[in-house]
């Protein structure tokens, strides 16, 4: 097939953005449910929380696996630099993802209190640490990392943990917690549902505080991440959509429309990722202090041939993926009911 007339590099920038946004919207809520897990007290509440995400969390994580695979194939130089540069951070992310994944499966297999406590902690801490590290990685990519002329990372693990990156990490934890609380509210009823409604409001306040601090810090210290909006004021409408979507969440919760609240939260995430993508484009990783070594969609990409093959794979695959995802969410719609096959 011939895609010569298309800007394949830009298309793949967008497609990877789509995969990672899909990951944030989907795994975001089950990581968020994990962050809130320890705030529920009774065993039944905890089982309800787990079963709210039970049938879908594994599929949600596939978005990350596929996003990683697509990044490897389309922009191998970015994959190599970021993964080797963030070595320890990514190893910790792996441990966090392993623990929370097996904890979901293991927890309800035994009745002992100590056993369930152990996996409750594994699930919750694993979820928070995963969200935090994802945020720290995004923060570093925006801030810029030291790259040499081969694209190799020359900093250390500790140099990744600067205040801006950590602040972005906390913001992501807050965002996912809010998103998870809304999803859990959608899937529950009775006293737990009422409790979650209260938590949603607290999560929104927590997120808005984090978001305000991060935005101020970005404007002051990372001005290149606001340059494109500065130059093209009409792009501010995206930031506006984001803020309105967040403001709409408490309104929908007030009218007991949990589903619309969840959609609002998804829209906010899409707007945030769009802003991030717009400011990064055409770069994928910024090099700081030497911007000439930045990795962009041109110097980090695979060949045109590979990008077009991958596009064919994506065009065949994405409708299938959407079909499975939508049918699974449809089949498992409605409130959680615990039964024999539940966790």
């Amino acid at each position: 097939m011939n895609f010569d007339s298309l800007d394949l590099n830009a298309i793949w920038f967008v497609l990877i953005g789509v995969l990672l946004t899909g990951y944030a919207m989907l795994d975001g809520f089950d990581l968020g449910v994990g962050a809130l897990h320890l705030f529920t007290k009774t065993d039944e509440e905890r089982r309800t929380m787990l079963n709210a995400i039970g049938p879908v969390w594994d599929g949600n994580e596939v978005w990350l696996v596929t996003g990683g695979g697509a990044l490897f194939a389309a922009f191998p130089a970015v994959y190599a630099s970021v993964f080797s540069g963030f070595y320890m951070a990514f190893v910790l992310l792996l441990f966090a993802l392993i623990f929370r994944g097996v904890a979901i499966e293991f927890r309800s297999k035994q009745p002992m209190l100590w056993w369930r406590r152990l996996w409750d902690y594994g699930f919750s801490i694993g979820s928070v640490v995963s969200s935090l590290l994802i945020g720290v990685a995004i923060g570093n990519i925006a801030w810029g990392i030291p790259l040499d002329e081969n694209g190799d990372f020359t900093g250390t693990f500790w140099s990744l943990l600067h205040p801006y990156a950590l602040m972005l990490g906390i913001t992501v934890v807050a965002l996912f917690a809010m998103h998870g609380a809304i999803y859990a509210a959608m899937k529950t009823e009775g006293p737990l549902h009422e409790k979650l409604r209260g938590w949603i409001n607290n999560c929104i306040i927590f997120f808005i505080i984090c978001y305000a601090i991060t935005t101020m810090a970005t404007l002051l210290y990372v001005p290149h991440m606001a340059a494109r909006i500065g130059a093209n004021p009409w792009l501010f409408s995206i930031a506006l959509v984001n803020m309105l979507a967040i403001a709409n969440i408490p309104r929908e919760i007030h009218y007991r429309r949990d589903g619309f609240a969840f959609i609002s939260s998804c829209v906010a995430m899409i707007a945030l990722m769009t802003l991030f993508g717009l400011e990064m484009f055409p770069n994928l990783v910024l090099s700081n202090p030497n911007p000439l070594n930045s990795l962009s969609i041109h110097n980090a990409a695979s060949s045109k041939k590979t990008l077009s093959i991958m596009l064919v794979i994506a065009v065949i695959g994405i409708p299938l993926v959407l079909a499975y995802t939508i049918s699974i969410y449809w089949i498992f719609r409605g409130k959680v009911k615990l039964d024999r096959s539940s966790y």
Partner: peptide, 29 residues
């Protein structure tokens, strides 16, 4: 999947164009 990048970065740069597509296809299909 992560280790290809973390431990074998030079390998990832060398083969990404070829090997990466198979991994991405595994995810999607």
């Amino acid at each position: 999947e992560f280790e290809f990048g973390t431990n074998w970065a030079a390998y990832s740069r060398y083969v990404g164009d070829v090997f990466g597509s198979a991994l991405a296809a595994e995810g999607i299909f």
